[in-house]
Amino acid sequence: MIFGVLGVVNFSHGACYMLGAMIAAILLRDTGMTFWVALVVVPLVMFLIGVLMERLLVQWLLKLDPLYNFLLTFGLTLFTVDLVKRQYGVSSLAYPVPAGLGGRVSLGSVELSVYQIFAAAFSVLVCVVVWLVLTKTRVGMIVRASTEDAERSRALGINVARWVTPVFGFGIALAGLAGVLAAPTRSVNADMGSFFVIILFAIVVIGGLGSILGAVVAGFLVGLVEAYGQGYVGQFSQVLIFVLMALVILFRPAGLFGREEAA
């Protein structure tokens, strides 16, 4: 979505995911902020960070070659990761599962924690809300139109530039939210975002570049393959994602929902 609206390949989403989790963990350690409060506060903080990042850096780079954007977001990622390492070290911070969501349940042969089910349901809820905003509101309509063709939208009187900053910030906020959601399920450290980039890449390839429905469905597929794969083949689940990616590239080069000409 961000790629379409801005022409920015945002590989910094992995770093933002990590930042979201780190901020939540640090706030818990230093101020005792609970998971539920962090779920609201962290995305807001990340939104502001996103807006600043866009205003200060991305804005003027938009005029240059897309390759520079790629390099910028990549550089920004490395910078953020290193900054967090310097400040907080490489060891992981603990983030306990929030009260009331502990325990496990078994679904057939797969055993899932209550928290995993909560996180999955919450993600679906967020997806549905984003989906509704995109499809049912005027803002969503403008975002879809500008994603499809920014130049054409400008020629129809839409001030695309005015929407770029908030949409960018929103994307960063979502990545931060994903980080908070993930924090109780894994070790929170500076490197936790690196695999996220690969998953993000997989989602884009599988769903088709610029297809919003594709991104939602692919995100879900990748999540399922990872969760169920973990139950059956453990570490191999990450390989499964690449198998899925390879299959899609073989049979639907433009992605599941991509337009053929966009390939």
């Binding site: 309509m141 130049e151 400008r154 020629a155």
Partner: peptide
């Protein structure tokens, strides 16, 4: 800018018609 010109009353109908497929 193009959006300013459009809002000043100039309407563009491009050669490819410019219809959005996602709308």
């Amino acid at each position: 800018s193009p959006d300013k010109r459009a809002r000043a009353g100039i309407g563009w109908v491009p050669d490819d018609r410019g219809i959005y497929s996602t709308l």
